[in-house]
């Protein structure tokens, strides 16, 4: 059995016929062909699949595609055109907030929502806000600096 869905991803309508059990992250990667969103675990711990679902950050491995039908999703590819970078992307680059890069899309998307809720977070608040995203390379310190830096350039203090 398949169910028709239509999800707006990065401003573009993506329609498909999917199994009810399909995870949103697989729709994004397989159906929409947007592989910036990663799969790092199967227990909703790692946060590499974090996207924005109707403006709220969500782990796309814990959402069924059919649940997201009619919704609007922003992935890392939708944050900028890839050339004129989003301030968070620029800040991750400037602060060496990534090494292997696998956690980075999810980390940036989680940080984006964090800054939308709290435009001027303290380092401690950033650490707390990113506890749902695991990075194994950076030890988090430069990620915290990147988010702090982005907050400044986005108008927070």
């Amino acid at each position: 059995m398949t169910i028709p869905v239509e999800i707006t991803i990065n401003g573009k309508a993506c329609a498909g016929e999917v199994e009810p059990r399909q995870l949103l992250v697989h729709f994004i990667r397989e159906n929409a062909g947007l592989t910036g969103t990663k799969v790092g675990c199967d227990t909703s711990q790692c946060g590499t699949c974090t996207v924005q679902l109707d403006g709220v950050s969500a782990k796309a491995c814990t959402v069924l595609t059919v649940q997201a039908s009619g919704s609007s999703v922003t992935t890392i590819e939708g944050l900028s055109d890839g050339v004129d970078l989003h301030p968070l992307q620029e800040a991750f680059w400037n602060n060496h907030g990534l090494q292997c890069g696998f956690c980075t899309p999810g980390m940036i998307m989680a940080a984006n929502e964090l800054l939308s809720r709290n435009p001027s977070p303290s380092r401690e608040e950033i650490r707390h806000g990113l506890e749902g995203n695991i990075c194994r390379c950076t030890g988090y310190q430069n990620i915290v600096s990147a988010v702090e830096d982005a907050a400044k350039s986005m108008g927070g203090r």
Binding site: T35, Q89, W93, L98, G101, P105
Partner: peptide
């Protein structure tokens, strides 16, 4: 200096094996 490999990684444009 900031890393030359980063632009593809921070924009979701890098290809890991499972992306292919």
């Amino acid at each position: 200096i900031r890393r030359r490999e980063d632009p593809r990684l921070i924009t979701g444009r890098a290809s890991y094996t499972d992306d292919i």
